[in-house]
Simulated scan of single mutants.
Amino acid sequence: MKQTGLEVRPMFHWAPRRIEAHVKLCVLALQVQRTAEIRTGLSWARIAHLLGTLKAVRYVAERQTIVQRTKIGPELAGLLKTLGISALKQVMAMSEAAETPATS
């Protein structure tokens, strides 16, 4: 595990079930990371950088809220395709803002 570049920090759990759950989650995260590296042939740092460019942005205008993803560049699109991950819709959510009662 020293060769993975996995950054860890101290976690303090005392209950056996929480310790077990934490270890399982760490192993699962490492497996996902290694699978992505093997499938793409890229380092985890590069994969994380590309995934970091994808963000969700919330716009609030008058009485409407829109959640939209940022544009997916060609390199990120290729990465997602290689990993078998379908891209999210451009507009992820739309909702009418609830009216706030006037305060006196």
Rank of each mutant, 00 (worst) to 15 (best):
Q31L: 11
V27Y: 10
A87H: 04
E37D: 07
S43P: 02
V57W: 06
L6V: 15
G84E: 00
L88I: 13
L42P: 02
I72R: 01
Y59E: 14
R58E: 03
R46T: 13
T65H: 09
E75K: 11
K55C: 02
K55G: 00
K71S: 09
I66D: 02
L88G: 03
I66P: 00
A21M: 12
E75N: 05
R34C: 01
L83E: 00
M1Q: 07
L80H: 03
Q64K: 14
H22I: 03
K89Y: 04
V32P: 01
Y59S: 13
E99R: 15
K81N: 03
T70M: 02
A97Q: 14
M1C: 06
T70C: 01
E62N: 09
L83C: 01
R69T: 04
G73C: 05
S104C: 05
A93D: 07
E99V: 10
E99Y: 12
M94N: 10
V23E: 05
G73E: 08
M92R: 07
L79R: 04
E62L: 09
G73M: 06
A36W: 06
M11I: 14
M11N: 12
L25E: 09
M94T: 15
Q68H: 06
P101I: 14
A21D: 12
W14A: 13
V8D: 03
R18F: 13
T82V: 06
T65R: 15
E99A: 12
S104Y: 10
A45M: 07
A21W: 14
R46M: 06
V8K: 12
R17V: 03
K55L: 05
M94I: 15
Q31G: 09
L42T: 05
S104H: 13
T35D: 04
T70E: 01
L42F: 10
E75S: 07
V91S: 02
T100I: 13
T35F: 03
T35M: 04
L54P: 01
R34P: 00
M1T: 08
R69D: 00
G5R: 07
R63L: 07
V91N: 01
G52A: 03
V60K: 15
V57I: 10
T53H: 06
S104I: 08
T82Q: 02
